[in-house]
């Protein structure tokens, strides 16, 4: 087992809230991802079994959502918004800057395993565009200078 006893307990608890355990699929994937960083095939199989689903069914859910990772990611994922208001106000410049600063392209992870760079759709803060999330935290009115402040030297190639 890759899932810890704690994780199994929490997943079972979530599943108990619904008429069918499979309804807790997203909750379970989130719980597992929080502990393990991403959803490997082995994790997927274990979760599917806990929820009484086939791995294929659970995978059709896991691959559907922007925030479930089916490949390894860095400790902190940078999601930069590329939707219309952010695009208009400099999202592409920010992405280019991040890419150069971290030495990675979209979908790639820095050598030290710290950051993965991914685009994301509208983050719902268009009045403070451009916006991006680094890990759990959302940053507003971002420009390359602000990115340098936020990231410092960490993750530099």
């Amino acid at each position: 087992m890759i899932l810890t006893p704690d994780e199994i307990r929490t997943i079972r608890q979530e599943a108990g809230h619904f008429p069918h355990p499979s309804a807790a699929a997203i909750e379970a994937l989130n719980i597992a991802q929080e502990g393990h960083g991403w959803i490997s095939d082995e994790l997927l199989k274990e979760i599917a079994e806990l929820l009484g689903m086939s791995p294929a069914d659970l995978d059709s859910v896991a691959t559907f959502y922007n925030l479930i990772y089916r490949r390894p990611v860095g400790r902190r994922v940078i999601h930069y918004c590329n939707s219309v208001s952010c695009w208009m106000l400099g999202a592409e410049d920010n992405c280019r800057h991040l890419s150069e600063k971290l030495g990675i392209g979209l979908g790639e992870t820095t050598g030290d395993g710290e950051y993965t760079l991914l685009p994301i759709v509208c983050l719902g803060a268009c009045d403070r565009a451009p916006v991006l999330m680094i890990g759990e935290e959302t940053h507003f009115n971002v420009d390359p200078a602000k990115l340098d402040d936020i990231l410092g030297d960490s993750g530099a190639p």
């Binding site: 619904f18 309804a23 807790a24 699929a25 997203i26 859910v61 922007n66 994301i120 759709v121």
Partner: peptide
């Protein structure tokens, strides 16, 4: 808390999502 997909704002897709389905 959802895992991010615009279509979930459509009410019947939202219900499928809440049921743990695609």
């Amino acid at each position: 808390t959802s895992a991010g997909r615009y279509i979930c704002g459509e009410e019947t897709a939202l219900l499928n999502s809440l049921e743990g389905k695609r």
